[in-house]
Write a protein that binds this DNA or RNA. Structure first.
Lengths: 204, 204
DNA sequence: GTATAACTTTACCGGACGGTAAATCGGGGG
DNA sequence: CCCCCGATTTACCGTCCGGTAAAGTTATAC
């Protein structure tokens, strides 16, 4: 039931369900999420969910793909940006923004990190999130490689540096979300600059 | 109901319940944990839990304190260790060991990180975990400060470096647990060495 | 206009959930 | 010997859960 349907209205309805799931998940958290709550966040009744998805597990897997896709699609960089500027933009985007439609960056991250933790008990979720991790890390690795080619970065192991940056972003967000450390994303940004990006520059 | 009881047997029973909770949590995961499952992991019936704890929420908060305490108590360092050796030992302990009784390091970490993610929806859990984070980070900051005093480390911001190390440990574990990246803890160890500890040494 | 297919609603179910009341057990003091 | 009381078991309950069957609605094609 996860493959896209043909008709227009069913696509709309699936979108409506995804947004309702988001709203319910934001308010209740993953552990207290009930099909009924999702229904209450829509104009439609909760039983339509069972028509469009094969039960709760399928819904959650589809929702995880939906939110990961939104995340990936949200990255905007100019083609003519220099590598360092693009790298900065990507990092800032992961740590601080952007907002679109009714949901804030931290709404999305709260839900994302909650599903991330749950993935250890769900192979399907783990697979989706691993793909997404590779995608995010890959986009950072790519810009580092471009910087090396263009001579603005030192000839480092791009994969390794990309992973460091990705992980530093992740833990900065998580400390804010799980422990309530409001300053954690800013601190993560500074640590990335000082300990990783500085050793990337050719003119250090 | 969280304060320690006086009698001997009630203390034993609480311990039995904690261990049963651990076993159930390891097998089922937090989201699928039921009072019934904990009962099945003990010789006692599940209703004794309600005699010793004020329901599931109180049980889980007590369990979180129990597991955090175990974690803290597990760190063994000699008093006469030099700061760099103690720092290495503490990092390795957080990343790789030790095991005690029937549970492995990763059993404990799986449960710990799952509760960590849940803390964003539970103020009591957040408070306990924040205290624990400060404790772990504090022990690392302390040894860095000692190293600075003894002249084996450069005069850096010990609090900042302690946080970097703590966070790098956390994300290395999480990537292994949530995404199944078996090599992540090793990579975290190498990254800590190369990017953080190297810039601590006076003889770089 | 009416047959058909897509979609939505109404009504309902069996089971699992956390929790409680009351009965029972078992050891120490009188 | 029995009473007391903390500890545990047995039996049970009201509620909520995810899911389904069937009726109703709407739009389109012929």
């Amino acid at each position: 039931m996860s493959e896209p349907d043909e008709t227009v209205s069913s696509k709309d309805t699936r979108e409506v369900i995804m947004e309702a799931t988001f709203r319910a998940l934001r308010q209740r958290g993953y552990g207290d999420l009930r099909m009924r709550h999702i229904g209450e966040e829509m104009d439609l009744t909760r039983q339509v969910i069972h028509y469009h998805f094969d039960g709760k597990d399928d819904l959650m897997a589809s929702f995880l793909e939906y939110i990961a896709e939104q995340y990936e699609g949200s990255v905007e960089v100019d083609d003519d940006m220099d590598p360092r500027a693009e790298l900065d933009a990507r990092i800032d985007q992961c740590l601080f923004g952007p907002e679109f439609d009714e949901f804030t960056h931290w709404d999305r991250m709260k839900v994302y990190h909650e599903l991330f933790a749950h993935a250890q008990n769900d192979d399907r979720h783990q697979e989706i999130l691993d793909d997404h991790y590779e995608q995010i890390k890959g986009s950072i690795v790519a810009v580092i490689e471009r910087g090396i080619d263009e001579g603005v970065f030192r000839d480092v192991d791009a994969d390794r540096f990309g992973q460091l940056v990705t992980d530093a972003i992740h833990v900065g967000r998580e400390r804010r979300i799980s422990l309530g450390h409001e300053e954690a994303p800013e601190e993560a940004r500074e640590a990335i600059d000082e300990f990783i990006l500085d050793s990337l520059s050719v003119d250090e």
